[in-house]
Design a protein around this nucleic acid. Structure first.
Lengths: 353, 353
DNA sequence: GTGAAAGCGCTAACAG
DNA sequence: CTGTTAGCGCTTTCAC
């Protein structure tokens, strides 16, 4: 008796069943079994079923390594996620995953972790496994390392702008996103808008440049200030401390992402500064956190799963068709206004005195 | 000229450099190159260096598949994460990763994603890749599927209690954790403490049972109520709605994890019920979120990275030593009291009238 | 130490 | 459709 859910069956310990075994047991040639395992159309229904039945009974499972070695392709792509703790990446992965399944590819996930040169090492592993392609999500690798890599294997970069003609890329248009943020803030009356940046993180420089440009466009060049950060809540908190120490608190803060914003708000709150009454705060990404009423963060939403889907599709196209020109997709992000932003109301500095 | 950071070098396009090539170029036999690549001590320093230099120059990279095929082991373990969006799993992974590096193992990460039978499929992939072992973090697989799997390959389960003698497991002691929660709440004066559970999620049943037992132990059997959930914020919100609709709001809520708690608080807030004044809320896991001032959630902390480390170590021990008895580690969790809990103050029900 | 020989389990032509 | 013949790139004896 089995449970009603399809019984999960795994081969028994140490028993290494090969194609040969299946062939012998089914009374056919090994080649025939190979064809069946690959769903070749040139196998009769009867034989196919018999082979499949025997394989099932024996607990046969194709050896991916042998298959990859012999066929010289793995139908597997490596996905390197910058950071597994940030749900942003998980959501991009959802899209990659979905599209990969649709296209019949398998994915191998890796992240840099805390190691030094973690990304290089992960890429190295993908290369040794001979994945057919690599998806880099928010990589911190240098642009030259990425284009170099692209010479060895098809590569697509997500959530970071690339200009190389060797690698495809899918990202949101930071200029549009940041312009919407600054526009929203200036419309509320803010002039002094600081930016806590993402340091050397993926896309941080683009966002920083977009901020500078948008401030200029809105005639707020004088109220510009960039505080160094790194895409974490701790960075947000530290940045607030720095501003406080400098006695230079702006009326609004544009954080590099929602985590930085959360950390900043947390710290502001701890110092007795109210958001948005004393300081308005805007994030980026619209992760789950931002929507909680406790935070209710004004932020910018990027279509993450869609980015993942497009990236994987582009990669597979390059793998299979050998496309040579680069595809650079820029999706339009959307400002999501919640309650962490409001009209400025006098200088927050007074509260410190 | 190169950049100061060690130049990243990847082999050029399509150039498939094999051991043979390196051997020829270095003027040695292929076997020698093989020994060098495996850090064999029986190779002289000079030759070793020459081989390494040639390999580097040619951009040689060992083929993991060929190596795995020939050696019949991969020094790779598969890690199946229940859910990539939940930072809890990422933190367990940090520990696994660290220990794997220490022990010279490589890890392959997978998650069930949104697919049906996602876990089975991921496990299937690990099996096809012939990983030396598998780490299951918070698996939803049936216990029988897991023990069945363990017959094929070494397995260790994290964050879920197993009683099988075939698989090792590392988890926190839910009974202790939940008892601490209920103890804290009853000490504050609560009697009606509802539990929003984790549905069929990993460890949900254990936590549910622990709740029932703890309530009994504290003489609060009458105030017991379990509302079905599933480890997500949405479930927390829905559970609150249900309680509201039933006109049966307890004075305290023990949520299956921090996300459920966050969702519950969010909803309570939306309904005008204050936390902790009207309802106290406790979570589980102490993820990043819980520490934010906006939430300041009382919760239970599990040593996640430590769990990961222990699990990987146990797995490798089983792989290499072939240990046959199961190791079941139970770590002691710690109650973290913040400000989402307080003494009950009259019935929250009144507020609905 | 070193090199030759024999596979690991599978795919890929190519004749039947 | 079927069976045979070659490898894929590497590790592993096992003599030298």
């Amino acid at each position: 008796m089995r449970s009603r859910n399809e019984p999960v069956k795994w081969p028994a310990a140490g028993v290494r069943v090969t194609m040969e075994d299946v062939a012998r047991e089914a009374g056919v040639s090994r080649a025939l079994v190979s064809l069946v395992m690959r769903d070749s159309p040139k196998v009769g229904v009867k034989r196919r079923e018999r082979v499949l039945a025997v394989a099932e009974r024996l607990g046969y499972r194709p050896n991916a390594m042998a298959r990859g070695l012999a066929s010289r392709r793995t139908r597997t792509v490596g996905v390197l996620l910058n950071e597994l703790h940030n749900p942003f990446y998980a959501e991009v992965l959802d899209g990659v995953d979905e599209e990969a399944e649709r296209l019949g590819y398998r994915i191998l996930i890796a992240s840099a972790g805390a190691r030094t040169r973690g990304e290089e090492r992960a890429v190295e592993a993908f290369l040794e496994y001979r994945t057919d392609g690599i998806v880099l999500v928010g990589p911190r690798l240098s642009a030259s390392a990425i284009t170099g890599l692209a010479e060895a294997v098809p590569v697509v970069v997500v959530a970071r702008v690339m200009r190389s003609s060797m690698v495809d890329s899918v990202a949101n248009d930071d200029y549009q996103g940041v312009r919407a943020v600054v526009g929203h803030l200036t419309a509320l009356g803010h002039r002094r808008i600081a930016h806590i940046d993402g340091g050397s993180g993926a896309g941080a420089s683009t966002r920083r440049a977009a901020y500078a440009r948008a401030m200029r466009e809105h005639g707020c060049d004088g109220g510009r200030r960039v505080i160094a950060g790194d895409y974490t809540a701790q960075a947000g908190a530290r940045a607030v401390e720095r501003m406080l120490a400098d006695g230079d608190m702006p009326t609004a803060i544009f954080a590099a992402n929602d985590f930085v914003a959360a950390g900043a708000i947390d710290r502001l709150d701890a110092e007795g500064l109210r958001v948005p009454e004393d300081v308005s705060v805007v994030g980026y990404d619209d992760v789950f956190l931002a929507g909680l009423r406790g935070l209710s963060l004004t932020t910018v939403n990027q279509p993450r799963p869609e980015m993942g889907r497009l990236a994987l599709a582009a990669l597979v196209e390059r793998i299979e068709e050998g496309r040579s020109d680069a595809l650079h997709v820029r999706l339009t992000p959307e400002l999501v206004v919640r309650s962490s932003t409001a009209r400025p109301r006098g200088s927050a500095l007074r509260l410190r005195a």
